[in-house]
Computed example of a mutant assay.
Amino acid sequence: MDKFQEFLEYLKENDIKKAVIIKKENINYFLEKYPPNFSMLIFDTKKDTAILQVSKLDFEMAKGYKNKNLDIELYENFESTFKECNGIEDSLPIRFLKFVKDYKLVSKKIEEMREIKTKAEIENIKKAAKISDNAIEYATKLALENDNLTENQVAAEIEYFMKKNGSIRPSFDTIAISDKKTRLPHGMPSNDLVKNILLMDIGALYEGYCSDITRTVILNENIKNYSEIYNVVNSVKNEAERNLKAGISVKELDLIAREHMGEFKDYFIHSLGHGVGVEIHENPAISSKIKEDVILKEGMVITIEPGIYTNDFGVRIEDLYLVKKNGFEKLSNAKILEY
């Protein structure tokens, strides 16, 4: 059963006559390609079909999205779109609720469906990962060969490279930070010169599907503790990989990584990883702090990204994985440097 039919069956079982999806990432999920800028996806159980509503600006382009599961219509107004609608997302803006009565939320079902990737989704993620692999290797070479680059220049080079090689845009704000700023997991680039250590956390967006990869490059091997901590982080990632397969719980995987950190585990201040798909952070969270434990299933795409953040600098290494029955397929394959 394809995802359109699965969702329609869910709506029928829950007495939802009509569901309107406006969250772009959820529309992207059903289309398996990047949707028009203004679009709404309507599931009508009476007609047993889905309808993509678009504006006049995107109508000609949207004709190419039509398939056996999907009709294309011209948007008229919100009142007619939401007429008889009783299924909505929990992210629906409050201003639309005046058009809806006695509604049921459908977001949890979509989130559950999104956890397991189809073959087409996996191919899109692989293409996104290939773009970001090449971009980070290009930027690493650039940083090692030049000593007068700013963080903003590195970030701009990465984004230009990804765009030139097929990415719609970055899948999140590009992180390219150096020196003491690397101790900030979500630090943002500036016009500071790159020196001592460079952390790059980047992702490409291909047909609306994300990649996510992080590499830390040591530019000055003479500074105390850089190499030691880098090798601990890399060892922790390798230990997590040894235990990664369908059937392991996310809490257990996270705890295995933390225990392997040894004396540095208090400096690991975020979760081990997260799901990736049409959004850069999806279920499941790879964390020991979540309330309900989650078992990894075949077909999930996740990251593993251990990090250590001291008062002086930070190191993070991250890759993207497809969970398989007896292990995984690594989707990001940019070289990890050795020190």
Rank of each mutant, 00 (worst) to 15 (best):
L74N: 10
K180R: 14
E282I: 01
K46L: 08
V106T: 06
Y267D: 10
I286S: 02
Y10D: 04
S271E: 15
L199K: 12
A176Q: 05
N146A: 07
E292T: 12
K117Y: 12
I317G: 12
Y309V: 00
A135C: 09
V100N: 05
N86I: 07
A155T: 08
F172H: 15
Y29Q: 13
A246S: 11
A139R: 00
Y103L: 08
F172E: 15
K164M: 15
I122P: 03
A155S: 15
L144C: 05
G187A: 07
V233S: 04
I290W: 09
N77V: 01
D133V: 02
K33L: 12
N191M: 01
A246Y: 08
E241C: 12
I317W: 02
A240K: 04
V250F: 07
E84M: 11
H260L: 06
F268W: 10
S107T: 15
P306I: 11
K325M: 09
I295G: 08
H260S: 14
E239S: 13
L8R: 03
K108I: 06
T216Q: 09
V301A: 11
T49A: 09
D15P: 03
T45K: 01
D254I: 08
N326Q: 11
K98C: 02
I202K: 06
D147P: 00
E13D: 15
E25M: 07
T150N: 01
I317N: 11
E292G: 02
I304W: 05
K23W: 04
A62P: 00
L57A: 13
C85T: 15
K23Y: 06
Q5F: 01
V233C: 02
G187C: 05
P189D: 03
K17F: 12
I197L: 12
